[in-house]
């Protein structure tokens, strides 16, 4: 019984509608993919069978990379101890921010509490979603921008095939960063709303999930990590990231590097010049990393330990550059002048 419980615990995310890999969302994504493929083949004979075959392609789901995804999914459960204590700090952050807001003289508690309830709920639902999405964009951009963080994020990009489980192909330390991000954004938005709009704030939600997150999931969020490349119209790809755009983000082609960091919204990429539309791009992309990155698509010891070695190396280099060298230069100022032997 205990063993069964533990197994159920490990796979709990598949039945939790708060998670992207909830089976219901995966099923919907599969249906969307099916519809897309059949329509694209204009209902030609055998289109349905072919589409099903393409979606369930064993070359994808049983690839070495995908199997590594599955293993990482299970192993990372063991690292939940890194995350649980962080979650406790969320209330602390929220309370500290709530206290601090009292010091802002032009704001006062309940300032907008007379607004009608549906407006408050709609505003809160929207702001929480938008801020959360923006923070995801920002952190994701930093994961690519800073070498120290890239060492970790490489694990995710080492996938050579994409499946919905790839969303969990993350180094445990990167998981900690994502948790911190979520704690900081929610820990800030919630007290701000509670302060300004009073105690009756709540979310418009479906199955316990912010309705906007729910919409993101039921419209095929799982296709972002899949082999079915669905593009949107260019105007729509300026607003929402299409599965195809995310595939470009994983592409090994240099022109696709550091593009499309967005999670649900594309506006951040558009605003900060990292947007890359899928129009004119082939759907036959190669995913993964350059050999120079010292990573592996499937070898777990490399995936878990190489980032630590890389980080140590980078930290050493930073230490030398930022502290050691300036210190030596400073010391040189106090050295006595060399006597000239010719004198």
């Amino acid at each position: 019984m205990d063993l069964l419980d533990q197994i159920a615990q490990i796979f709990a995310d598949f039945v939790n509608p708060k998670k992207r890999i909830f089976l219901g969302y995966i099923a919907l994504s599969a249906l969307i993919a099916l519809g897309f493929l059949v329509v694209r083949r204009k209902g030609a004979r055998g289109a349905w069978a072919q589409a099903v075959k393409q979606i369930l392609d064993p070359k994808v789901f049983l690839s070495r990379s995908a199997i590594a995804d599955y293993k990482i999914f299970v192993i990372n459960r063991l690292f939940s101890f890194l995350i649980s204590p962080l979650l406790l700090s969320q209330v602390g952050i929220a309370t500290a921010i709530y206290f601090a807001l009292h010091r802002v003289e032009f704001l006062h508690p309940g300032q907008f509490s007379t607004l009608n309830q549906p407006t408050i709920i709609a505003l809160f639902t929207l702001v929480l979603f938008v801020v959360d999405d923006f923070s995801k964009y920002l952190l994701h951009r930093w994961m690519h921008r800073f070498p120290l963080l890239w060492s970790l994020h490489k694990v995710h990009h080492s996938a050579t095939t994409l499946t919905p489980v790839t969303v969990y192909r993350v180094h445990p330390l990167e998981g900690v960063l994502y948790t911190l991000r979520s704690i900081v954004t929610q820990g800030s938005v919630i007290p701000l709303f509670y302060f300004l709009f009073g105690s009756d704030i709540s979310l418009y939600s479906v199955v316990g999930v912010n309705v906007l997150v729910f919409v993101f999931h039921v419209t095929g969020s799982n296709l972002r990590h899949s082999h079915i490349s669905i593009s949107y119209w260019p105007w729509l790809e300026h607003l929402f990231i299409s599965p195809a755009q995310h595939h470009l983000h994983h592409s090994t082609a240099e022109r696709h590097f550091d593009k499309n960091f967005g999670a649900a919204l594309a506006i951040w990429d558009w605003l900060f010049a990292s947007l890359h539309l899928s129009k004119g791009e082939t759907s036959d992309l190669t995913f993964g990393l350059d050999a120079r990155e010292n990573s592996s698509e499937a070898q777990l010891s490399v995936l878990y330990f190489q980032p630590l070695r890389d980080m140590a190396r980078i930290a050493k280099r930073l230490l030398r550059r930022l502290i050691l060298r300036p210190a030596l230069r400073l010391l040189a100022l106090f050295r006595p002048p060399r006597s000239d032997p010719k004198a």
Binding site: K18, K19, L86, L128, Y168, V170, Y178, Q186, I190, R224
Partner: peptide, 10 residues
């Protein structure tokens, strides 16, 4: 409202 962290990566 906490969505229990979520180690999902894009």
């Amino acid at each position: 409202l906490s969505n229990d962290g979520g180690a999902e990566s894009d």
